[in-house]
Design a binder for these strands. Structure first.
Lengths: 349, 349
DNA sequence: CTGAAAGCGCTAACAC
DNA sequence: GTGTTAGCGCTTTCAG
């Protein structure tokens, strides 16, 4: 162990043990210790074991900072977001964390809270921290957001909401496909009169989901009911109103696709209140597969999942590929979606 | 250095500009440039301006890594959590980010996903990254969680859920007080027959909120109705069942306190379905002030806010105080709560 | 008031 | 196989 630290601090935390300590204990040079610990270079198994044992004994933790300084990589990616609720960003973060496998990537998460000045500030801080790359998670809107610019010193991937600049790489949920999947599912269940409850029509997420569903039905020669509303929002209040109107116009519909889970929840309530059984009389599909909502509707809600965790993994993967010399790519790439079937379309057995 | 890199990068990113570049352009030494940029030491305003101008011209971004290596601080705190939903951790993170003011603190967020092995692994990674301190955010339970141990090289604060080790410092929402505040609010509104809808009674959050409300009413000589249930959970389904039972036992109650916002929502629905007006006949108060829920009940829900952002700021503040030499402290510290009044207790004008 | 130089802990050439 | 020697970019004595 080391000698006593004479400048005893209030509660002296021990000096971190360094590679030099390990090397000394193992009776080798720092270089050898480094190689042994990183599995680089050939060396006698005996020496390697001795070093590893020494490191273990001292509970040696290599300094990522020093390592970075020496080789220019931090294994850290930044996430810049405005998603105050964390609904979108948390799964994306978890995916990014996993991109390189256990413990190889860390994520610095910063929330700009919708403030552009703050965003620049945080970008600056992230760059100072020598992040290897940056994921910009838009939201709550999925509409294009301003680009951070082309001359950043690290690869940048926009996720969830795309960048306005087509030269940037953006990963976006395939909302059209999401709508299609919802409609196809209902069609396969024999539903022929499918209505739509949209959210705020200024959000492209709402319009695209609607368009996807309409397109799928059109291919079967059917029509999506209740489309084309020019107003609306994402509240359950609106969902109730929209569902009510839809039922007035089409009292005989047998399925509803909602642009979000919350709207679907509202629709289910209206259906029940008007004496319709879900899913027997009317089947309901939501969007986002948000656990808080889908588990609390009665019956539980079938929903289209945006697979944000996969998106996060892909985003981080692209960043590391780019650092390895591959082209980052540009433009909008659509990411896959999944249908999660629950009781609101297929009765629980 | 040496020869040209033969695996010529696809798109060579320019070398970052360093302090040496700035110093050269300004015609001073690195030392002077450093002092100028950090506002340390006395120097002629003229020199300082020249350096600052040079830095601006080169868009100089200091390397936090190098700086850390030189002075042993990263300005980074780690957050270790199991809160997959991000409900608790996001506000705490935002508070921590703000603790030292704009851009001075970064937060590395890691989610162990409830896996103890993964947690050790992530702790290790965080320590390698030379975090200045660690915030362990428990959840979803607020019950004590296992300590990470006493011999960590950085200050650790447990937030939201306390550590089992009384020697650790834990910051916990004052749930007893939260219950009291809810009850006092109702009492002041003239409500005298107050019922309680609890969640999972194995969660101390549920029991403490109940105890707080009961205590406040007891001081007024009243009793909290419907307490002491030995089963239950946090689903809306249970909330409906519990509210229904409560109304059977006490059909004349004039207020309900629920242990969570979702339970409150369920209670409001049951109240409406049984022909009671909220808040005229029965006032309802929830807990957590979770925006997703409180904005979607009809009327909007009065709720007790745990002020998690403040908790995050406090946690990070304590860490930096400890680094500055103050005692970290230990034991459980309760943090303040706030009542947010909405239409479910006071009718909208 | 400013510059030179010695590290911070680690990695990577390059010797031996 | 293993040790020596430079740095990585910045801060900080210590001289001038």
């Amino acid at each position: 162990m080391g000698s006593v630290d004479s400048r005893d601090a209030v509660r002296a935390r021990p000096r971190r043990t360094t590679l030099a300590d390990v090397a000394r204990l193992a009776g080798v040079s720092k270089a050898t210790a480094s190689r042994a610990l990183n599995g680089r270079g050939e060396m006698s198994a005996e020496t390697r074991d001795r070093v590893v044992a020494a490191a273990a004994e001292l509970a040696f933790t290599p300094s990522a900072m020093a390592r970075n300084l020496a080789n220019g990589r931090t294994g850290t990616v930044g996430i810049l977001t405005n998603d105050l609720e964390g609904r979108f960003v948390i799964p994306i973060l978890m995916g990014a964390e996993d991109a390189l496998g256990a413990g190889r990537t860390s994520v610095i998460l910063t929330d700009a809270r919708g403030d552009a000045v703050r965003e620049r500030q945080q970008l600056r801080t992230l760059l100072e921290r020598q992040i290897d790359g940056l994921i910009v998670v838009g939201g709550p809107r999925t509409d294009p957001r301003p680009s951070l610019g082309r001359d950043l010193p690290v690869p940048v991937v926009y996720a969830y909401a795309p960048s306005e600049d087509p030269d940037d790489l953006s990963l976006v949920v395939d909302n059209v496909r999401a709508g299609r999947i919802a409609a196809e599912h209902l069609w396969e269940l024999g539903r022929r009169r499918v209505g739509f409850v949209g959210g705020d029509p200024t959000y492209c997420a709402s319009r695209e989901r609607e368009a996807g569903a309409a397109a799928a039905l059109a291919e079967h020669g059917a029509e999506l009911l209740g489309t084309g509303l020019r107003s609306g929002d994402w509240t359950e209040r609106w969902g109730r109103a929209a569902a009510g109107r839809l039922l007035e116009l089409h009292p005989d519909l047998d399925a509803v696709i909602a642009a979000s889970d919350q709207l679907a929840r509202a629709a289910i309530e209206v259906l029940r209140e008007t004496g319709r059984a879900v899913p027997e009389d009317v089947a309901v599909v939501g969007h986002d597969n948000w656990s808080v909502v889908v588990a609390n509707t009665r019956p539980e809600l079938t929903s289209v999942d945006g697979r944000l965790e996969t998106m996060g993994r892909t985003a981080a993967g692209r960043i590391f590929d780019a650092l390895a010399g591959q082209e980052l790519g540009h433009g909008v790439e659509l990411t896959g979606v999944d249908l999660v079937i629950r009781g609101s379309t297929v009765p629980d057995e």
